[in-house]
């Protein structure tokens, strides 16, 4: 799962538990939430469970055309206690701009450079650098690279293997990640 936050006051074991929790929530809830968002014509859907909540918001200006239900929205998964910051509509903030706040996670879309058949490349959770190949689009047998727009972690891949994708279609979300171990403060 995406390596979203590394609050310095949590132990390695707690962080592992956090990630497992996020992964579980995302797997269980996000597809259903996105489906509901797409069919109910809502702007935003939120579900709470204990300390955790998941909010899914339709990106501003996203049209309904050629949008498949599972890619009509950008899922945002937040840590407990950090919800207000992580899910506001404000633009991403630079990491560590306020003591104790988790860095704002920035998401950018990798788009298809061609019309063709989608072939997945790296799995979700893979750390990539800007320009790295995330997947390919098969254009009459010629694989064309879909590359990451930023340094980060592949958060989601929208098409299924073999799906047709059009030119410019958003096929994967990449979540910016701070450099590994920076500001971890653990011994």
């Amino acid at each position: 799962m995406p390596d979203l936050h590394r609050p310095g006051d949590r132990t390695a074991a707690q962080r592992a538990a956090d990630h497992a929790g996020i992964a579980g929530l995302a797997d269980a809830l996000v597809p259903a939430l996105v489906a509901r968002l797409s069919t109910a014509n809502l702007g935003e859907v939120e579900i709470r469970e204990g300390d955790w909540h998941v909010r899914v918001r339709r990106p501003a200006g996203a049209g309904p055309r050629r949008e498949r239900p599972h890619r009509a929205a950008l899922p945002i998964v937040a840590l407990p206690g950090a919800a207000a910051h992580a899910t506001t509509a404000q633009p991403p903030r630079p990491a560590g701009d306020a003591a104790g706040d988790p860095p704002g996670a920035r998401q950018e879309m990798a788009v298809s450079p061609a019309v063709g058949m989608f072939r997945p490349g790296v799995p979700v959770g893979t750390r990539v650098r800007a320009g790295d190949r995330i997947a390919t689009v098969d254009l009459l047998g010629i694989p064309i690279d879909v590359v990451s727009p930023i340094d980060g972690v592949v958060a989601e891949v929208y098409p299924q293997p073999g799906d047709g994708v059009e030119y410019g279609e958003e096929v994967a979300a990449v979540e910016s990640a701070p450099p590994p171990a920076a500001g971890a403060g653990e011994g």
Binding site: R66, V115, L139, L140, G164, E166, Y167, G168
Partner: peptide, 25 residues
């Protein structure tokens, strides 16, 4: 409707691979 390329016709309406690929998918 399927987007086959940018405004530049050489990469859309004049691109045989893009058009054929669009027909197939």
């Amino acid at each position: 409707a399927i987007c086959i390329g940018p405004a530049d016709a050489k990469r859309s309406y004049l691109s045989a691979p893009a058009i054929i690929s669009a027909a197939l998918v």
